[in-house]
Nucleic acid binder design. Sequence first.
DNA 1: CTGAAAGCGCTTACAG
DNA 2: CTGAAAGCGCTTACAG
Lengths: 349, 349
Amino acid sequence: MGDTQDKPRPRPFRVTSFDVAAEAGVSQSTVSRALAGDPVVSEATRLRVAEAARKLNYFVDENAARLRTGRTGTLAVVVVCRPGEDRKDLNPFHSALLASLCGAASLRGYETLVSFQDGPDNFNGRYQEQRKADGLAVIGTTENYSAWDYFRQLGQGGMHWVCWGAPFDDVEWIRSDNHGGGRMATRHLIDQGYRQIVCLGSETSPQRQFGERYDGYAEEMRAAGLDPVLLPIEKGLPREEQGRRAVAALIEAGTPFDALFAVCDPIALGALDELHARGLAVPGTVGLVGFDGIRAGAYSAPPLTSVEPDFRVAGEMMVDKLLAEIAGEPLDSRRVPVRLLVRESSKRG
Amino acid sequence: MGDTQDKPRPRPFRVTSFDVAAEAGVSQSTVSRALAGDPVVSEATRLRVAEAARKLNYFVDENAARLRTGRTGTLAVVVVCRPGEDRKDLNPFHSALLASLCGAASLRGYETLVSFQDGPDNFNGRYQEQRKADGLAVIGTTENYSAWDYFRQLGQGGMHWVCWGAPFDDVEWIRSDNHGGGRMATRHLIDQGYRQIVCLGSETSPQRQFGERYDGYAEEMRAAGLDPVLLPIEKGLPREEQGRRAVAALIEAGTPFDALFAVCDPIALGALDELHARGLAVPGTVGLVGFDGIRAGAYSAPPLTSVEPDFRVAGEMMVDKLLAEIAGEPLDSRRVPVRLLVRESSKRG
DNA sequence: CTGAAAGCGCTTACAG
DNA sequence: CTGAAAGCGCTTACAG
């Protein structure tokens, strides 16, 4: 009965597995096994330990567990932004993908460590070396080339990663079924009776998806005996402005058209604006379809028909591919299915 | 020269601070101090250690560091979703706030562990107990009451946290300057010559911000010698539908009005839709102002005037308040400044 | 089925 | 200014 008993512990102290062991009347190693669900522990013991843990409000210190096991149970997610871009202008497509990724990771028992990176002073992909995560998913704007170069280089150094949006193909990427989506959009316009369908896009953009969407469009046009026409967007401008200028260029060149397939929604919304400004009715005079299904398209006048990827599948596919990389058993799947969101802008009927 | 030399290490092995110490010809503790920037280390030693670390591609194992120090350098962020809501429908306001939060945390040297939670089966706020984070920021939909109850209870148990969107006031919350924003919007409509301005909103919504916005509106109306009129929105409907029905109810009741102040943008967009459907020109016949500055408002026809919080400040304020809580020196600041985004829907001039 | 012990890789008093 | 040593709180062979 000296001061060895009820020795005061420094505050704030932590409840550890030793405290739980004392409470439950077992050894510390048994506590660890019981709480980890090791089937070797008897049911009676497990219950006693669980009760003691509950009573003491005990939770495993994940840092200690991770130090011991070497696994983090965490995936890092980097959202690549335009340099200096205001945070509030986060692309809604990327925000939906981010949420989907985090949700899919969570369902598979992984936490997500998220960061938004926009320039060399804050690039960081050293998650594995610092044992903060088991792998990395990178999404975001294609146009931040130095970011993509940075992550590609880390990938070549053995980092486990997958990405959506890289401007090159020699990495583990996931993308929408852009070719199929391009066909769908074009088929839909043809079915509505439009014939002189022009694609506002690019064959050579670093945005791989733009070329793929154009290819799908061109293939469907040819299959219908129609001639594909590409009106190339101007580089280095905001998407909406690219859409406006494309329509202006089309009209000034005297190219006949009765429908437009824009390779992304913001370009389509810019085009819509310019069509209105020039008194061309949508969808009466000109049909219009975009790509990506962004929320703003539902509020435009008229609401914009678009091709939308399955975001749930997108997140799942990225996480599954990444976990497969980590496990050393790479997966092939890299195409997310898309569907046509028919709204008003393409309904000639 | 036995096999004690160049003993093969199990693969995959980690480069540790002992390896760096051997390479640099110093002790392991010196490596730790040097890389941590401890000023007690001589410049020459620091350089030698840094070079050795670079050469061996060494990075500190954060799990070991955190186990030792007890600090995680991480903030948890929970986004509360509507139960069963599709991930892609993440509210753009919350997505902007999330990005701002992560950015502010990063600038202060903190990582962000992000999760989207929507129901009791995935509620988790035990970040401190598991030593995964030093504190928690919760944002998201007010309407998931069980989520907010869960986090409030954890907060009463001593968890460090701040939030945006809780349906009660006895927690550490941050909000927009809703009262000031309501006044701004109303003042603007009055300045444009509108007089019969009706507020589409609620005085009693669990969404505290709605009542605050109404109060600002009412105060500004009275200050101008005008009578505030509240058209209460119906509960349990999508926001857009609430807006449509509010306009319908207003017209059917025969209430005269020449402008509407909606307490959030989706309600305003729904109202806009109904006004169009009934042949009422905006802004010619009816002026319209919303609140929150969501991106879709920029694409509506006409584009929507709105009150927008400063998202950068919002994230900073949440992080600073949370860090202050953690440090045991609570901050008072809880109001984020707003500004009026004047677009077409309110320009009578 | 359970316990005693080693060890994951750091940081930080303590000593010199 | 630097080094030897303790210890953060776990998991997991190893032994019984």
